[in-house]
Amino acid sequence: MSVVSGESRPHTKYDRLIAAAKAIPATTTVVVHPCDESSLRGVADAAAAGIITPILVGPVAKISSTAAAHNIDISGYELVDAPHSEAAAAKAVELIHAAKGEMLMKGSLHTDELMRSVTAKTGLRTDRRISHVFVMDVPAYTETVFVTDAAINIAPDLDCKRDIIQNAIDLYNQAGFGTSPRVAILSAVETVTSKIPSTIEAAALCKMADRGQITGGLLDGPLAFDNAVDKEAARIKGIKSEVAGRAQILVVPDLEAGNMLAKNLSYFAHADGAGIVLGARVPIVLTSRADTARSRMASCAVATLYADGRRRRAATVAA
């Protein structure tokens, strides 16, 4: 797997994701404050495709008037009233605790409003650090690539990066993308140097994987972006690695780097980007107002596949 120079592949990877999600039971999804057209239409599209069964939480009058104004049929959905966005986020967390849903989905509220309720003492924390993954369909790359973390953890330390990587590996393995993903820990260079702290952390993370502190994937780093995704770049640099030139998960040094990388892929490479938050008690679909309808659908599909994988894994353990 590598960058294909001069070739523009169609966006077929999301088609496969969406088709796979349609083939399994719809996941009951608590949607928080869907009070504008884009968020409500994303819910309706995913529900019509049989990917989610939504419960809409927020000011019912506002949700209903938005649906009526934009001709979106929500008559078949359960609505739970909450006076404003903050109350909607808190109520959504309560519904998850009451086992009313297996996923959360962000509506038209700010991300930090939702995450405050998720990360509160009575929220949805686990012993794993919460992190975000962009699941990206890049036309010039041969398969789906993950970028993490580009939305939650601003300046993650070594322990946080361990969880960021483990969350992404678990998503890859449990959502049907494959097994043992190739994980590239990115920096500006591919050699370890004290002048660039992220190279030292990359080396430490690889050793942690060797010692079983990170499991389920194949790690290498530090790697610069070019030799992480392009075989020829790796060959020229003399890098011999199962990961170099073939990475499936790209781990960035910090949020700024991740955000820039994901948006560069979106706007320069015409990639689609689905967003999901991991490490909480349930997967969280984190959409943006700038997302296309296709990206919103793909985000729901990824989260549904992951929820189904977790459900099947739990059943296997119980048996």
Rank of each mutant, 00 (worst) to 15 (best):
residue 113 E to G: 10
residue 113 E to Q: 14
residue 115 M to Y: 12
residue 116 R to A: 12
residue 116 R to V: 08
residue 116 R to E: 09
residue 117 S to E: 03
residue 117 S to F: 04
residue 117 S to M: 01
residue 118 V to Y: 05
residue 119 T to H: 10
residue 119 T to K: 14
residue 119 T to W: 11
residue 121 K to L: 09
residue 121 K to S: 09
residue 121 K to D: 03
residue 122 T to I: 12
residue 123 G to N: 02
residue 123 G to R: 03
residue 123 G to M: 01
residue 125 R to L: 13
residue 125 R to H: 00
residue 126 T to L: 05
residue 128 R to F: 00
residue 128 R to V: 09
residue 130 I to A: 05
residue 130 I to H: 04
residue 130 I to K: 05
residue 132 H to P: 01
residue 132 H to Y: 11
residue 132 H to W: 00
residue 132 H to T: 02
residue 133 V to C: 10
residue 133 V to F: 04
residue 134 F to C: 01
residue 134 F to M: 14
residue 135 V to K: 00
residue 135 V to T: 04
residue 135 V to Y: 01
residue 135 V to M: 07
residue 136 M to A: 14
residue 136 M to R: 03
residue 137 D to W: 02
residue 137 D to Q: 03
residue 138 V to F: 01
residue 138 V to Y: 00
residue 139 P to L: 08
residue 139 P to R: 06
residue 140 A to S: 10
residue 141 Y to V: 09
residue 141 Y to T: 05
residue 142 T to Y: 11
residue 142 T to D: 12
residue 142 T to S: 14
residue 142 T to E: 15
residue 143 E to M: 12
residue 146 F to Y: 14
residue 146 F to W: 13
residue 146 F to Q: 06
residue 146 F to G: 02
residue 147 V to L: 04
residue 148 T to C: 09
residue 149 D to T: 00
residue 150 A to T: 07
residue 151 A to D: 06
residue 151 A to F: 10
residue 151 A to Q: 11
residue 152 I to C: 08
residue 152 I to G: 08
residue 153 N to P: 08
residue 155 A to T: 12
residue 155 A to Q: 12
residue 155 A to K: 15
residue 156 P to K: 13
residue 156 P to C: 15
residue 157 D to E: 11
residue 157 D to Q: 11
residue 157 D to R: 12
residue 158 L to T: 15
residue 159 D to N: 15
residue 161 K to I: 07
residue 162 R to S: 12
residue 162 R to N: 05
residue 163 D to F: 07
residue 163 D to T: 11
